[in-house]
Design a protein around this nucleic acid. Structure first.
Lengths: 154, 154
DNA sequence: TGGACATGCATAGATTATCTATGTAATTTG
DNA sequence: CAAATTACATAGATAATCTATGCATGTCCA
């Protein structure tokens, strides 16, 4: 039994993660578009941040963040302040309305998975938590600049 | 310790799955656009299928599938045959070129996670496989019409 | 057997999400 | 201080998706 054969493993993991994400984004009902919700969550995690910091944390381009921020700003969900240390940069932070919007999104996302999670017993919930940890660890490992590179290219 | 508290669990799971997916789609280098790759994989799994079957399996709308199929067809990766049982319907299937393209995508996706997976030992790989199973089970449970409803609304 | 309704797919039109390339203003450096 | 760098914005393109709707084929029944 080579169920853990690395070759299929990466493929299977990405496929399953993508499917779950796709299903949730289709069935969770909240008004906030997906990318904006993602950015709200990121801002909540990081606190007031620069545009470029958000882009790096989101693994997206700086112009993508700029565009989304304009929408969030128009909705009154974020506000900008000039970075006191650098007049080129701005510090973006959530407004109270932004936090409310984020809470709405979270409730909707919890609700969409609740039917599946509610039937689970303790051990099953532990398995879910472990799965989350695996995803996070893999992403951290993958996104991290390789610490002990094989230097197959200089 | 309520690390398995269901409320945060759904949220955390969706967030982690979405982040991993996003990261992979940004870093995996293959020419095939994401949605087309997804459809190729689905066709490979299901074999010759109707448009509406693909839409249901992909949890997407029928017009979305139609659009993607047009592109796949233009690329020579799928072909259509009229369903002998129903002249309205078509049966879509992968061409050999389509299977080749799918293999390329798979290789690229494996490669993007390989640096993170290669460093893992046996038990860690088992954990990854378990995480995949959790994702699949949750999606199946969530997408399934509830089999034993609590009938809190009638 | 023929009309009414249902079904399978295509098209139209709009929105969101994203990228690369480039421009502008502020900062740092030699 | 001029040149290079950095932080962000803008331009322009493409992909992915949805809802609404149109057209052809199938089914059902009086």
């Amino acid at each position: 039994m080579r169920v853990t054969e690395p070759t299929s493993l990466g493929n299977d993991l990405l496929r399953s993660a993508a499917r779950l994400s796709r299903w949730a984004s289709r069935h969770a009902s909240f008004d906030v578009p997906f990318a904006q919700a993602r950015l709200l969550a990121l801002l909540d995690e990081l606190g007031p941040s620069r545009v470029s910091t958000l882009a790096a944390a989101d693994h997206s381009s700086q112009p993508s963040i700029t565009t989304q921020l304009h929408r969030l700003e128009a909705a009154g969900w974020v506000e900008r302040a000039v970075d006191p240390d650098d007049a080129r940069a701005s510090l973006v932070s959530l407004t109270p309305a932004g936090k409310d919007a984020l809470e709405d999104v979270r409730r909707a996302r919890v609700a969409v998975l609740a039917p599946a999670l509610d039937g689970l017993d303790g051990p099953a919930l532990v398995r879910v938590r472990m799965a989350i940890d695996v995803l996070d660890e893999l992403l951290a490992a993958a996104a991290e600049p390789p610490s002990h590179p094989t230097r197959k290219d200089g």
